[in-house]
Measured scan of single mutants.
Amino acid sequence: DVEEQIRRLEEVLKKNQPVTWNGTTYTDPNEIKKVIEELRK
C-alpha cells in the first residue's frame, strides 16, 4: 500500500533517521522527500 509506505517514510523523516529504500540508504531529508514524491506519482 503506497499510502502506508508514504506514512512510514514521513514518520522516519520527522525523527531525522536514515531510510533504506530499495537497497539504498538515504540520510538526507531532501532525498527522503524525493522518494516520497516519487511514491505519490
Rank of each mutant, 00 (worst) to 15 (best):
V35F: 12
R7Q: 07
T20A: 08
R8S: 07
I32Y: 02
I6Y: 02
T27Y: 13
T24I: 15
W21K: 01
P18F: 12
E37H: 06
L39R: 00
I6V: 05
Q17N: 07
T24W: 06
N30T: 14
I32R: 00
T25Q: 09
T27F: 12
E3A: 11
W21M: 06
L13Y: 04
Q17I: 13
R40V: 10
K15V: 05
V2D: 03
E37S: 08
D1M: 08
E31R: 03
I32M: 03
E3T: 10
K41T: 12
N16G: 15
I36F: 04
Q5S: 10
N16V: 04
E10L: 10
E11P: 00
T20L: 12
E37L: 08
T27A: 08
V12R: 15
D1L: 13
R8L: 14
L13C: 03
R40D: 02
K33F: 06
P29C: 05
N30P: 02
W21F: 14
E10W: 10
P18L: 08
N30D: 15
L39E: 01
P29D: 04
V35G: 00
V2N: 06
I32L: 11
D28N: 07
N30V: 14
K15I: 09
W21P: 01
L13Q: 02
T20N: 13
K33Q: 12
E3G: 08
Y26T: 02
I32F: 06
L39P: 00
V35P: 00
E31H: 07
P29V: 08
V12I: 14
Q5H: 11
T20F: 12
E38Y: 09
P29L: 09
I6T: 02
K15Q: 14
Y26N: 01
R7Y: 06
R8G: 09
G23W: 01
I36A: 01
W21S: 01
V35D: 01
V2H: 06
P18C: 07
V2M: 09
E10F: 09
R7V: 05
K34F: 06
T25W: 12
L9C: 03
D28C: 05
I32Q: 01
E11S: 08
N22D: 11
P18Q: 11
P29W: 08
L13R: 03
G23E: 03
N22R: 07
R8V: 14
L9P: 00
P18A: 11
D1H: 09
L39I: 06
K41F: 10
E10I: 09
I36T: 01
V2P: 06
E10S: 04
N30H: 10
V12G: 15
L9N: 00
I32G: 01
E38S: 10
I36G: 00
K15N: 15
T20G: 02
V2W: 15
V2Q: 06
K15S: 15
R7P: 00
I32D: 00
W21N: 02
V35N: 01
E38T: 10
K14P: 02
T24Y: 10
G23A: 03
Y26F: 10
E37D: 12
L39K: 00
V12Q: 15
E11T: 07
P18N: 06
P18M: 11
K14V: 12
K41Q: 14
V2F: 09
I6H: 01
I36R: 00
E31I: 07
T20R: 06
L9M: 07
E10Q: 08
N22L: 10
N22V: 03
E37M: 06
N16T: 06
E10C: 07
K34T: 06
E38R: 08
K34P: 00
V19G: 06
Y26Q: 01
E37I: 05
N22A: 05
R8I: 15
Q5P: 02
E4G: 04
D28M: 04
E10K: 04
I6S: 02
E3S: 12
K41M: 13
W21D: 02
D28F: 03
Y26I: 14
E38V: 04
R40F: 05
E4F: 05
E38L: 11
Y26H: 03
K33D: 03
K15D: 10
W21R: 00
E10H: 05
I6K: 01
N30I: 14
D1R: 10
E31F: 05
P29F: 11
K34M: 10
K14I: 12
E31T: 06
V12A: 15
R7F: 06
L13W: 06
E38C: 12
G23L: 02
N22Q: 08
E31P: 01
V2R: 06
K41L: 14
E37F: 04
L9E: 01
V2E: 03
D28E: 11
E4W: 10
G23P: 01
D28W: 03
E31W: 03
L9Y: 02
I32E: 00
K15E: 09
T27V: 12
L13M: 11
Q17M: 15
T20M: 13
E38H: 10
E4I: 08
I36W: 03
R8T: 13
Q17E: 15
Q5D: 09
V35W: 03
E38I: 07
E4N: 07
E3I: 08
N22M: 13
K14L: 10
E3Q: 14
D28H: 07
N16R: 11
R40K: 12
I32P: 00
Q5E: 13
N22P: 02
P18W: 10
E11I: 06
K15F: 09
V19S: 03
D28P: 01
E4A: 08
E3Y: 13
K14S: 15
I32N: 00
T25H: 10
E4T: 09
R8H: 14
T25G: 03
N30S: 11
E11M: 10
K14E: 13
D28L: 05
Q17D: 08
L13N: 02
T24E: 07
K14M: 12
E10Y: 08
